[in-house]
């Protein structure tokens, strides 16, 4: 297998193996019954699978991508630990308890800086592709959410706030596809 093949095949194998292992373990632990539980078992193992395949790809990554990987991993680990700690703290009742809940937001701010730094360190064509994709994502998400206000008045189902986050990533994917396609 040549290097070019290894670059794609090994991370793909790592992704599939981790994903399948994750699904099997979660299925064994949770015994999913409801649609929400099944969705969790199907989607949650994607996170470790992406992590493992990216870690395998590190060998072929450019230096700024490696730096980004470790910084992003550190930020997300701090975020997950922060949520876990926030869930286990039994602080006495106080009007300032909301500050404890907001603690995990700090690693998220760090992750935002890491992403901005990554885009800034990318080479000029990729910087343009990322910026176009993010611009499309931001504008499309904003207009979709704003347009929902009109639908809501007409009796549309409730639009949950977290859906805006998922929508942003969907639009980002669409933006990336078209932006990359222009320079392929």
């Amino acid at each position: 297998m040549n290097t070019q093949m290894k670059k794609y095949v090994l991370p793909a194998i790592g992704f599939l193996a981790t994903y399948l292992l994750g699904v099997v373990v979660m299925n064994y632990e949770l015994h999913p019954v409801t649609a929400a539980q099944i969705l969790t078992v199907i989607t949650f193992p994607l996170c470790p699978a992406v992590f493992v395949s990216t870690a395998i790809s590190l060998k072929w990554m450019r230096p700024h991508q490696k730096k980004y990987f470790w910084r992003f991993t550190a930020g997300m680990t701090a975020y997950v630990l922060g949520i876990d700690v926030a869930n286990h703290i039994h602080a006495p009742p106080s009007p300032y308890n909301f500050l404890l809940v907001l603690l995990p937001v700090l690693p998220m701010i760090y992750v935002c800086f890491v992403i901005i730094r990554y885009i800034a360190d990318s080479d000029e064509m990729w910087r343009k592709i990322y910026m176009e994709a993010w611009a499309f994502s931001g504008i499309a998400t904003g207009f979709t959410c704003f347009s929902y206000l009109f639908l809501r008045d007409m009796g549309a189902p409730v639009f949950r706030a977290e859906w805006a986050f998922y929508l942003m990533w969907v639009y980002y994917g669409i933006g990336m596809f078209f932006s990359k396609w222009r320079y392929r």
């Binding site: 450019r62 080479d123 000029e124 064509m125 990729w126 343009k128 222009r182 320079y183 392929r184």
Partner: peptide, 18 residues
């Protein structure tokens, strides 16, 4: 110090370098 895709895009005249 750029990506291979950038070189390809310049060669195929899809992208003008800075």
């Amino acid at each position: 110090d750029v990506s291979r895709q950038t070189i390809n895009a310049i060669e195929t005249e899809k992208y003008d370098p800075s």
